[in-house]
Design a protein around this nucleic acid. Structure first.
Lengths: 343, 343
DNA sequence: TTTCTAAACGAAAACGTTTTCGAAAATAAC
DNA sequence: GTTATTTTCGAAAACGTTTTCGTTTAGAAA
């Protein structure tokens, strides 16, 4: 059984309070006794019982994290960033996956609150369209930070990229290299990201006087490789002369590339494709994929930083103003896009 | 502030003990009072204080998990499996990443013990060659299960694949399709996996009377895409007529494929390549990669199951015999390998 | 009636810490 | 010498549970 303060105290004939104070470097303990206590504590291999500390201090130095999916290049990068930053500050991270399900997300949020984590980081499931469960968290005074997939309607700190701007840049690039008929494979209707990416796409078309055609916009459900293949085929069946696609996610874009390869449609000669997220995979596929780099690791770090500040503020009973951190993205040009030569 | 047992007790004029007992379904409480207690507990939105429960019961229903790397298809699949299974049993998972570093791994192991998690799952870092820190965990009576990257020398439960057998199968397949001069890109010297995969490769050569040539075995450090490219180039510089490669990991194999594509060496016509792990990426690269499927999700589930049994046994003070679970792998043939036609 | 059993409840200890507050001892000031 | 101040320590409460064990009451058995 692990050593307790009491055992140390009995061994050297002082009180439990003194031992505790010595270990926590209080001023009112004689340097001599302190030295002795530190020494015996080390000898007896004392480790504070975190359960008791938690109960007493009402904090666990643990945060909760809910992501829609773990096996996912972007999210695993974010997770890595969160854990790295949390570790620096002495926090541990409990991870849960909502599998894009509203029900699970809600249950897990309750679970984490019951466990009394010091704060919660969450990226919202695609299946979520009601947001009361987040409000409850905030009402319960548990620090909450949303990242990447957020709810505009909820008033809390957020760490995101400017999806709309990034999508605008991607589409603009397609226009600049000479594409005239640009399709868009968008994500599901609900999540803010797909909405914003769609809006960026649309805005770019408008700004450069290319007529918007809703038939050129395909709505995905799974956002999967297979869907990319499927809609690529559908696109060529339904339209002629499409010379560019802006795709919601790299994985889907890669599916599309694969389909075009199979159909003997040349990328980028016949059609240029821009993805989104810069999955590692995109450097490896052939042709390699032009895409928007989405800084996952950094987003993770920033999300924890904001949460940390909120936790600290709560502890000191200071007022805290919700922060909104917007991270930069950039366009990475690879081989799936190519300027169209005028003939 | 959250409701406590005391507040419920005061509200309906019973003792704290009775409230506790009612909520935990003890026999010695009047059905009438029990009903009342349950009702008021619900009304007051009572949630047990997990800190107090932990302290009292000496368990936290939380386990620790250390992986070498999170942004990694195989490991993220394992993590997903672990979390899924843990959730079923009411356990939460704290995740740490060792970044393949011995120092970090050791520190994190201590961290988790100080946090008094109920058990620990670990996949060993490449940088680890001493194993005393694991012995300490076991001596401390903390349930410990190793998965995938294990230490043979440590006596504890393990969940693995049969790397040697899988490598044997992969190499055998290359031989069967007619490869005569087969190279091997192996992992670092330390981890058991790379040793076993190498041994499987060697054994297959022996069994089929192909002379083993140590010059055809390249030792990788990072096990990265870049290394795959680098050693593919080196291989063609240093050897002629190599017609097959068995590669330690898909990522490296994909690097090699990319290099061959760049050098205009045809895969699989000029050279066949077999990878290991079945990363999702391997379906997407061109040509798609023949590889060994390594069941990450299942491994995660099994690892937790074993740990769970060990935790339960410890709680009941039952004896527990360490388990060794070996999961099946299988060869997935894609387009990076092709039978060599005899001329 | 008395004695015994069972049902229902509560007091209290325990888990191991943190922190307040008062007391004692030692020192300084007068 | 007395009084004031500082230094050093420990008692004790508190955090919110769980669980043992004893007590009370009512009813059954004698």
């Amino acid at each position: 059984m692990p050593t307790t303060l009491k055992e140390i105290a009995e061994k050297i004939n002082v009180s439990v309070s003194t031992v505790s104070k010595a270990l926590k470097d209080y001023a009112d303990v004689n340097p001599e006794t302190k030295k002795l206590i530190l020494k015996t504590a080390k000898e007896m291999n004392y480790k504070p019982n975190s359960f008791a500390v938690n109960l007493r201090t009402k904090e666990s130095k643990t945060i909760g994290l809910i992501v829609p999916e773990i096996v996912h290049h972007f999210f695993s990068s974010v997770i890595k960033g969160i854990i790295a930053q949390a570790e620096k500050k002495g926090y541990l991270v409990i991870i849960l996956q909502s599998n894009e399900s509203y029900e699970l997300e809600k249950k897990q949020l309750e679970l984490l609150q019951n466990k009394r984590v010091d704060g919660i980081l969450v990226s919202i499931a695609n299946g979520t369209s009601k947001f009361d469960h987040f409000k409850e968290v905030i009402d319960n005074d548990t620090p909450l930070v949303m990242f990447d997939k957020i709810a505009k309607i909820i008033d809390c700190s957020k760490v995101i990229i400017d999806d709309r701007k990034a999508a605008y840049e991607a589409t603009k690039y397609l226009i600049e290299i000479g594409c005239k008929k640009i399709a868009h494979f968008r994500g599901p209707l609900l999540p803010q990201n797909s909405i914003d990416r769609f809006l960026g796409y649309k805005k770019a078309l408008e700004d450069f006087n290319i007529p918007y055609d809703s038939k050129l916009v395909y709505v995905l459900n799974d956002v999967s490789f297979e869907e990319g293949k499927y809609y690529a085929k559908k696109l060529v069946e339904e339209h002629k002369n499409v010379d560019g696609i802006f795709v919601n996610t790299d994985l889907v874009a890669i599916g599309a590339i694969t389909a075009f390869n199979e159909m003997n449609i040349k990328v980028p000669e016949d059609i240029s494709i821009v993805g989104f997220s810069n999955w590692f995979m995109s450097t490896v596929v052939s042709p390699s994929l032009t895409t928007i780099n989405q800084p996952g690791f950094k987003m993770g770090k920033e999300a924890f930083k904001v949460l940390y500040k909120e936790i600290k503020a709560k502890k000191k009973n200071e007022e805290f103003r919700y922060k909104k951190v917007v991270l930069d993205t950039d366009l990475i040009v690879r081989n799936s896009t190519k300027p169209i030569l005028k003939s």
